[in-house]
């Protein structure tokens, strides 16, 4: 038994050091392409850390969004930079010893503060356990995200919409890639896309009782769309105008509508307990759709438009 604990501790230590080492490498490597690849590796290692910390919901979100989609976004952005910008002479770092010292002191101080916290603290786990039965779902994380702190999630969906508005106003339409897509990618996409859609559906359905939920499902679905875009499928031509915009706002709009309805009973976002499960499922389906389309649209990087639409 003791041997196992020791091994686990060793694993934790290595994982922690690995995270710090990767972070240092990716922040200091001369080659930006390498930095981005290292960042994706860093995200996957983070997902492992979440698993070790008993946070499977976060691990799924990290793998899909933190590593996967952020990686894709970084790659796409890097490709749009002028080529001589991609490797950069690092700044002269001799003058930064004062900054290093200051940050070291801050880190040490914060370390001391964390060390001073009590070794055991229940947080809100008791409150969650007491109220889980009337939340409509059995996964405590989903209960917090969509019921106990559902208001946070409503605003968070608005953050996604804001970012997309910003990207649409700034992004520049690029002519689609000239070089043909290789057979490997095509086959991969044909195989992976249905699989990803299945995984997304499972995550969405499972979210009520097991790890998963709208954000993870939405991110996986977005990954499928990103793959299709990469393989040259003209999604941006198929999905435009009002239809696209309605899909983008499905989640926020459902949430706001529900908030408005609950306001008639004078209590913002209070679901009747007997309907809570169904309402949360409805919210999750709508949110998954919006999150997926929004993330894919963020990857596309400009507002897709029909020929009729004004510029």
């Amino acid at each position: 038994m003791e041997k196992v604990t020791l091994l686990i501790m060793l694993f934790d230590l290595l994982l922690g050091l690995g995270l710090l080492w990767l972070a240092w490498q990716l922040l200091e490597s001369r080659n930006l392409f390498k930095a981005v690849v290292l960042f994706v590796a860093f995200g996957l290692l983070m997902a492992l850390a979440w698993v070790r910390l008993d946070a499977p919901d976060v691990a799924l979100a990290e793998a899909a969004i933190g590593a996967g989609l952020t990686g894709a976004l970084l790659m796409a952005a890097l490709a749009k930079l002028p080529s001589r910008d991609k490797s950069e002479p690092l700044a002269d770092e001799k003058g930064h010893w004062l900054l290093r010292l200051a940050l070291l002191l801050v880190a040490a101080g914060l370390g001391y503060v964390v060390h001073s916290l009590p070794e055991s603290a229940p947080g809100l786990s008791a409150e969650i356990a007491n109220n889980l039965a009337s939340s409509g779902v059995n996964n405590p994380v989903t209960a917090v995200l969509l019921n106990f702190r559902g208001y946070d999630t409503l605003l968070e969906l608005m953050v996604l919409m804001l970012a997309l508005l910003g990207v649409w106003s700034l992004g520049i339409e690029r002519s689609t890639r000239e070089e043909p897509v290789g057979p490997v990618l095509t086959t991969l996409v044909q195989f992976l896309t249905p699989l990803l859609i299945l995984v997304a559906a499972y995550l969405l359905w499972a979210g009520a009782d097991a790890p998963g939920g709208a954000f993870q499902a939405g991110a996986v679905l977005a990954a499928a769309m990103v793959l299709l875009l990469l393989a040259g499928w003209p999604l941006q031509g198929l999905l435009t105008g009002v239809a696209l915009r309605l899909m983008l706002v499905a989640g926020p709009a459902t949430f706001v509508a529900l908030a408005g309805l609950t306001l008639l009973d004078a209590q913002l976002l209070a679901y009747p307990p007997q309907h809570a499960g169904k309402l949360i499922l409805l919210l999750e389906v709508a949110a998954t759709l919006s999150i997926a389309v929004t993330l894919a649209a963020l990857f596309l990087g400009y507002r897709p438009r029909t020929n009729k639409e004004p510029g």
Partner: peptide, 9 residues
């Protein structure tokens, strides 16, 4: 504690 998990997502 699930609350920080939701916060991190």
């Amino acid at each position: 504690d699930a609350v920080p998990h939701a916060m991190v997502i």
